[in-house]
Amino acid sequence: MPLSTFRIFFQTGAWLIVAFLVLPLLVVVPVSLTDTSYIGLPKEHLSLQHYVNYFNSPEWLHATWTSIWIGLVVATCASALGTSFAIGCWFLSDKASAIARWVLITPILVPPVVQSLGFYRFWVKLGLIDTSAGVILAHTLLALPYVSISVFAALANLDRNIPRAARSLGASVWQTVLAVIVPAAKPGILTGFVFAFIVSFDEIVGVLFITVRRVTTLPKQIWEGIQDNIDPTIAAVATLLVILTLIVTAIGALRRT
């Protein structure tokens, strides 16, 4: 096919956009390999010292572990609640459930700072400041809309007569939900679980508002690293996260084909 001006223009544009999206991510890779003790490009040779530092630092490892387990608990709670909510709304399908759906996605619409301020004021009263439970609760609220939206999407094309069919065949309401509706919603639940984990793993504004010393997640540790001593370990952590994400995405893509 001959390359028209039109095609050249749009192909160049597309590659520029890809570069714009990816380059800032890739900058962390050389920085992570620097032989200096401050953030910058390598001076004389490449070095893995900052990776060694990450794996030997109790603070970094602890923050990473905190983020992982909080993320898993949040994903589990948000998946259970969001799925129940979405299935309930699907069954009702009336005006009230449509309104409830809108109310549930407000955490996506409200600016994170405003939301976090709200968490802070409330959590003080509830005594949840600087506790894992407080972080889990806040993150579950933030992750709920993602789960319910993806479960709604999975149920959107399900025949409304299916629960009726199950009931007429002798299944109780609970058997119908567990044996028929939940399996149909499963792709949405899994997507929602992953999304909820990422929302929690990624979240920083809320954590900065509602934790002090006792709870430190990975984003908070990175944030404090930048503030205090511009430690290149941050770049090493960032590179590891990028690699991890690529691996997970690749596995996902391979499984689909």
Binding site: N161, I162, R164, A165, A166, S168, L169, G170
Partner: peptide
């Protein structure tokens, strides 16, 4: 409905999409 013991067939078939034909028929 589950206590009436009536089979029902719908216009849109209403088969369970996550089950094989065999499991659909075995469900009741």
């Amino acid at each position: 409905p589950e206590q009436r013991d009536f089979g029902m067939v719908f216009q849109g078939y209403a088969l369970f999409p996550t089950m094989t034909v065999r499991d659909n028929v075995a469900f009741p």
